[in-house]
């Protein structure tokens, strides 16, 4: 008698080894998305859009149709695809430089139009692929190759909270922030991802899940120290949770964040 399978690779993932650095959490984020595609039976009608950045090659790891976008334009690519093929599931997978900096306008307007797409936004507070430069999400005082003395908010402004920024739009949307620094948080984040795809499937609204992620290589830390650093530094600035749901209406912003205080 064969042993029971208790753990296996999602069908929506390929057998390829990833090129990600040791300890990088992209692999976890990929897996969460792939598991959700499997569970919702969406793989065969899903088109992913890859960003420019570390995850540019993510189509090598997802086993579904994929486009490789120009820098920051993944929401525009996804918009074009979804508008002409509304019956498909379309998701963009983007990093923080790609989404919050060069692609700021594309994500803002895709969200504001209420495009029925899902955006997986991996925020590790730094540019990875180009080798550790300051991102719009880099924390105050954080050292990067282009902020060698630590990010000075007087010179470069404060880190952008994309979840909060997009949640302020009147257009209904599902917008949440999770983290993958621990198994527990990963499980919660997967629930957000699952909801995001479900909202798209029901043609309800735009959906985005911001996922706090680590970059041990460019942070210059061990993977263990990275997860600790994320927890202690990123989460206080980037609080976790669902900030906007389509059911919540326009008023849910203040209720869910307590930002009015």
């Amino acid at each position: 008698m064969a042993a029971n399978t208790i753990f296996e690779k999602p069908v929506a993932m390929t057998d390829n080894h990833t090129h990600y650095c040791p300890g990088c959490t992209h692999g976890v984020a990929h897996r969460l998305v792939a598991e959700v595609l499997d569970e919702l039976g969406m793989r065969e009608r899903t088109i992913g859009v890859a960003p420019v950045g570390c995850s540019v090659l993510c189509y090598n790891y997802f086993d579904c149709d994929f486009l490789e976008a120009a820098h920051g334009r993944a929401p525009a690519f996804a918009t074009g695809m979804k508008r002409v093929c509304p019956e498909k599931i379309v998701f963009a997978y983007q990093g923080d430089g790609d989404l919050a900096s060069i692609g700021g306008n594309e994500i803002l307007h895709a969200a504001n139009r209420g495009e029925k797409i899902t955006v997986i936004f991996v925020n590790n507070a730094i540019y990875g692929m180009t080798g550790g430069q300051m991102a719009p999400t880099t924390l105050p005082g954080q050292v990067t190759t282009t902020s060698p003395m630590g990010r000075d908010v007087e010179l470069t402004g404060w880190p952008i909270r994309m979840r909060e920024l997009l949640s302020s739009l009147r257009t209904p949307a599902y917008i949440a922030r999770g983290s993958i620094h621990s198994p527990q948080e990963s499980i919660i984040t997967k629930q957000y991802v699952r909801k995001a795809f479900q909202y798209q499937d029901k043609n309800t609204c735009f959906s985005m899940v911001e996922i706090l992620s680590t970059c041990p290589t460019n942070w210059g830390m061990t993977p263990t120290d990275s997860t600790k650093w994320l927890k202690e530094n990123m989460i206080p600035y980037y609080p976790l949770g669902e900030l906007k749901t389509p059911e919540g209406g326009d008023g849910n912003f203040e209720r869910m964040t307590g930002i009015s205080e």
């Binding site: 088109i47 859009v49 486009l67 976008a69 120009a70 334009r73 525009a76 690519f77 996804a78 918009t79 074009g80 695809m81 979804k82 508008r83 002409v84 093929c85 594309e106």
Partner: peptide
């Protein structure tokens, strides 16, 4: 860039 996405169909 929407054209890229749409033409991919």
């Amino acid at each position: 860039n929407m054209i890229f996405g749409a033409a991919s169909s």
